[in-house]
Simulated assay, not measured.
Amino acid sequence: MPLLAQQPISRAGLSPSYSAAVASTTVLTGDRAFLHVKNAAGAPMTVTVTSTATQDGQPVADLVVTVPATNGDKMIGPLIPRLFASLADGVSASITYSSTTSVTVASLVI
């Protein structure tokens, strides 16, 4: 899975760069890390952030966010490491998209 480059938001401002979504990607986690998803398709789609956390031995549910059709967009996060960081590397979160047609994404950090 490709890792989206994380773009820092600064006081001077940020004009984020967006990439075409692919079926699954990874992003860096952090208490100030977010994923911005834009959907220009004619149907809503969902974004799933895989949870790696457990509570009392039970898995915590994945975060599933619906992005509206046409000109929908959602800011998703913060992508907190204790909930979403990969058990393999401890810093990246796994993201999947129900559709990638006309969907663009950016990984942001404040």
Rank of each mutant, 00 (worst) to 15 (best):
R11N: 13
A69S: 05
T25Y: 10
D56A: 11
A43S: 14
R11V: 14
S86A: 07
A88H: 08
I9G: 05
V22Q: 15
S24W: 10
A61Q: 09
V109L: 09
T25P: 03
A20S: 14
T52N: 03
Y18W: 05
G30T: 04
V91M: 11
G90L: 08
Q7W: 03
V27M: 12
V27Q: 06
K38L: 13
L35N: 04
R11Q: 13
A93E: 06
V67D: 02
M75F: 13
G30F: 03
T50N: 02
V47A: 05
P59A: 00
G42T: 08
T50R: 13
Q6G: 07
D62Q: 02
I80Q: 15
Y18L: 14
V105W: 10
L87V: 12
L87M: 11
V64M: 01
N39E: 02
F84C: 01
A33L: 04
P68Y: 04
P59K: 01
M45R: 06
Q58H: 11
D56I: 05
P16Y: 09
Q55T: 08
I110L: 14
V65N: 03
T70V: 12
T26L: 12
L4N: 09
D56F: 10
F84W: 03
A40G: 02
L3K: 15
S98N: 05
G57T: 06
P2A: 15
D73S: 12
V27H: 06
V37M: 05
N71V: 09
V67N: 03
L83S: 08
T52L: 01
S10A: 12
T66Y: 05
A12F: 14
S24V: 10
A21V: 01
V67R: 03
P2S: 14
K38F: 09
T96C: 02
A93R: 02
N39A: 00
A61N: 09
I95K: 04
P68D: 13
L87E: 13
T100H: 08
L108A: 00
R82V: 14
L28W: 08
G30A: 05
V49W: 03
S99E: 09
P44Q: 10
A23S: 15
G30M: 02
P44S: 15
R11G: 14
A93D: 06
S99W: 06
T46I: 02
L14N: 02
L14W: 01
P16C: 08
T100E: 07
L3C: 07
L4C: 06
A43N: 11
S102R: 10
A43F: 11
G13D: 08
A43Q: 13
T104G: 07
G90V: 07
A88T: 13
T104Y: 09
A33I: 06
Q55M: 09
I9A: 11
